[in-house]
């Protein structure tokens, strides 16, 4: 399955069903971040319900502390 994350194509070979799975795959689980899924912002509690499908576009933005 092919998706786009932050403008870059990503081919997923593993079985990934939800956004939660995707974040786990990208090693971003439990990080302070916001996910936009096909131009809709997901709230945290939606991560394990939102399904990942072919061609989906994601924007993932982290909150960092440094300055």
């Amino acid at each position: 399955m092919g998706i786009i994350v932050n403008g870059e194509s990503l081919e997923l070979n593993q079985r990934i069903e939800t956004v939660e799975d995707l974040l786990g795959h990208l090693q971003l689980k439990k990080k302070s971040l916001i996910v936009e899924h096909n131009q809709t912002i997901l709230k945290m509690e939606q991560h394990d319900k939102a399904k990942v499908t072919e061609g989906d576009r994601f924007e993932i933005v982290h909150f960092v502390g440094g300055g």
Binding site: K30, K31, S32, L33, I34, K43, M44, H62, F63, V64, G65, G66
Partner: peptide, 18 residues
């Protein structure tokens, strides 16, 4: 508002440089 919707494990620390 925003922080309530993201995991609250704290932000990335400054150990990766800049």
């Amino acid at each position: 508002c925003i922080m309530d919707h993201i995991p609250s494990d704290g932000a990335t620390c400054d150990t990766v440089g800049i």
